[in-house]
Design a protein around this nucleic acid. Structure first.
Lengths: 133, 133
DNA sequence: CTGACTGCAAACGTTTTGCACGGTA
DNA sequence: TACCGTGCAAAACGTTTGCAGTCAG
């Protein structure tokens, strides 16, 4: 399915700006507001930063995008997909998706603390293989 | 050891404002800037929000405090202690410390992704036992 | 006594808002 | 055509800075 239809399914109009935003996020995997604005401006040099914010907010509210909060970094946004966690390289700032079984942690905690876990946000920070030398 | 000495060990002067900040964080466990400002103002009604920020930043830089970034919430601060994770109740906003073995996750990931993990930030969000009904 | 800290006010960067125009459906 | 989205400018918001006076060590 293409982004035009995905946007419509979320009751959002498929404008060129929105399609460019989604394409840019898809290509980058994860991107922060500033870098996103730069990239969209290359395609639409008249685009407004307010438009970027409005759209990021609208798509995040519609659960089409997800905000990843990172220690010591600006948040990055990603397209919502299956549950996963993140690696953050504190040297090159790259964010990498990882698939960890957080469910077993969650179910242990649920029992021990009588707490109904609905969401797990895990970020492991350190040095990636390209930066390790 | 008392906070006066802890502050001095971190090369920070033990001012009444700083002691009040640390006491407030200790009592609350986790607290955000706004609530902290309110609490300190009760003791020192002339305290400036700038002072709160300066001190939080100084103590965070000195590794005396740690900022916990939460999904959909303002960050809260805690006094640095042994490595741990957090539960966030999305109903009452309470933050609860939990002790999970993130090391085993980290070491698995290290091998699989050739990534040297230095820090693990895990927040499990959901409903706490007091809010579950 | 001296450097660090405080409180105030101003500055700053980021995000949001209001509005007129334009484009999607 | 009706409404939603865009772009601009202004406003709002959270945080930082500069400075003069004060305090901890």
């Amino acid at each position: 399915m293409n982004y035009t239809n995905i946007l419509r399914e979320h009751n959002l109009k498929a404008t060129p700006q929105r399609l460019a935003i989604l394409e840019s996020i898809q290509i980058n995997g994860h991107i922060n507001i500033d870098k996103l604005y730069e990239e969209i401006k290359e395609k639409f040099n008249s685009v407004s930063l307010a438009t970027i914010y409005k759209n990021i907010n609208a798509m995040t509210k519609s659960m089409l995008l997800f905000e990843v909060k990172l220690p010591n970094e600006k948040s990055v946004y990603e397209i919502v997909k299956e549950q996963h966690s993140h690696l953050l390289c504190t040297n090159c700032n790259e964010v990498i998706d990882i698939y960890v079984d957080t469910n077993s942690i969650a179910s242990n905690i649920s029992k021990k603390h009588d707490f109904a876990v609905k969401q797990s946000d895990l970020v492991l920070s350190g040095t990636c293989k390209n930066c390790i030398n």
